[in-house]
Write a protein that binds this DNA or RNA. Structure first.
Lengths: 228, 228
DNA sequence: AGGTATGTTTCGGTCTGTGGGACACAGTAT
DNA sequence: ATACTGTGTCCCACAGACCGAAACATACCT
């Protein structure tokens, strides 16, 4: 997949251990043979990329945090001025969301200074079942990752197909009554969607088709933040 | 080293990219052949464990943070009650330190409630060149990792040998005038020192040989936090 | 123009990683 | 008490994944 099979397997194991995993759970989640899963998990443990608790469950290890925190996140650093510019260009609050399993995390924001505005504090966890950012974070995921969620979503598979076609999403009164929003993807160098950039505000100002008004600015901001 | 060579190399590459690295720098820091370094760095990039900026420098990628933040740090969770118990048992403030290159980071603390006390706020960055926690964090490091630091340290190689022999360290007026401290190692399951646990307070109360008084309690707390 | 440094890609060969199976232990069912 | 099943750990023969020298491309310096 990346061309280095051991690394591919190691990353699958790390992902499977995010919420803690016994060996049996690890084997079940990764579909790796037990000996392979055991051997690689132990090696990750030796490198402190995993730790093993008293019950024998593997969890993310401290070295991940050490490596992650060693340098500021390139995306977050670049996002600050871009969100500010987007807020100023559109006159609405702007946010950046990362996916966290079945939720989305607001990791950066630039808030409209005055008047009626949608405030999403940094660190907020919002649902993945409503809102234009959720649509963007899900639209390019494999169907098997999306299907379990769709019955609980305010949008449908058809909405997500439309998002893929247009390259952006809009929502009206999905996450919250009275709020409309527009979102676009931020992609990594391989083209994978890693975050969503959004503007949001009252329906009174944004209208029932907020994409007509702001999609271009949001898409452009997303493109500028892609590939970092 | 862990028994999985590709993983060993990948981790070396991740560590070398912490402050950003071009391919040439990566090759120089890791001593890997250039084709190997390039191939593995690209694979890490595909997995978003590294990102590559516009100048072609690799940096820690967002997936590290995603994996790290997914679950609370086992050690920090366990440390809270242990530091409180150590503070109560010794009557002095207690702290937990992680190594960060040439500094140490206080990541947890339990402060003595009243009277004369050493306050180290969580998040503080302290030097690696003075203090008993620094001695503990360095004592079991390979000589080549320690030698460059020693000329600037308040202690010597002999001090570190003594720390290894005793299993703990003490300092008097090293990091700060009037402050004495005792520290012990916290180890992972492979026996590697990953943190230092300390008590600290005024020399008036701790004396010039604070280890006589508190080493046993500190060592025991360190042992209890080891292997998580 | 020539030399050097850096980044990227290829591919034959070697040795690393794979994973079936054995073993030990714990838990469950009869 | 016994048998069976599930789980975790480890071994080692062998297949193929990874290695890395070499070639090539590009940029930079003199």
């Amino acid at each position: 997949m990346s061309g280095v099979g051991v690394l591919d397997k190691a990353v699958v194991i790390l992902a499977a251990c995010v919420d803690g995993a016994s060996l049996a759970e690890l084997v079940d989640r990764t579909k790796l043979p037990r000996a392979t899963a055991h051997r690689l998990a132990q090696a990750l443990e030796i490198h402190r990329l995993l730790v093993r608790d008293a019950q024998g469950r593997w969890r993310p290890g401290p070295r991940l945090g050490e490596l992650a925190n060693a340098a500021p996140d390139v995306l977050l650093t670049a996002a600050e001025p871009m969100l500010t510019a987007l807020r100023d260009a559109t006159g609405e609050s702007a946010q950046l969301y990362l996916r966290r399993a079945d939720e989305r995390l607001c990791v950066a924001a630039a808030e409209r200074a005055s008047g009626l505005r949608d405030t999403v504090p940094i660190g907020s966890v919002l649902p993945m079942t409503a809102g234009s950012a959720a649509q963007v974070l899900l639209a390019w995921e494999p169907p098997e990752a999306v299907m379990p969620l769709l019955p609980r979503c305010k949008f449908t598979g058809r909405t997500l197909a439309e998002v893929r076609r247009r390259g952006w999403a809009q929502s009206v009164a999905e996450r919250e009554a009275g709020v409309a929003s527009v979102s676009a993807p931020i992609r990594d160098r391989t083209g994978r969607v890693i975050a969503a950039i959004s503007v949001s505000g009252p329906i009174e100002r944004l209208g029932r088709r907020p994409g007509d008004r702001h999609a271009m600015a949001v898409v452009r901001a997303g493109q500028r933040l892609s590939g970092l």
